[in-house]
Amino acid sequence: MRMAFLLVAICGALACGIVLWAYFTPMTGITGTAGAALAAFGGGMVALGALLKAAAPGPGGFAALLSVLLFLGILGTGAAAYFLMQFVALGLMGVALLAWVAGVSRVARLDRGAIA
């Protein structure tokens, strides 16, 4: 489970880096745009959230909230990357989504095991 969220964090950080590069590099089509800044911020938040999730994997309201926010962050950053035509970042968010599903499934199984 921790590995899954670490993978989400890596994807988020990479997406953030890619979009930041496009933000600061001249003539990428999205240089200096608000959309690129937003997507970079989103990628960064995904990375941060995933690290928190990996560090605090236990059950509880905060962890559940973090999972939901992480999911929304991945979707939002992926959508932004799509509309910015940053397809590598979009692919990373796809991987992040799969990892998130794996991580959340693992949490759910552990929770069920704890209840049983």
């Binding site: 089509g29 999205i30 745009t33 608000a34 959309g35 690129a36 937003l38 932004a80 509309f83 910015l84 035509m85």
Partner: peptide, 8 residues
């Protein structure tokens, strides 16, 4: 069309 960097 492009707005705020986003391509429509």
């Amino acid at each position: 069309v492009q707005q705020w960097g986003f391509y429509m």
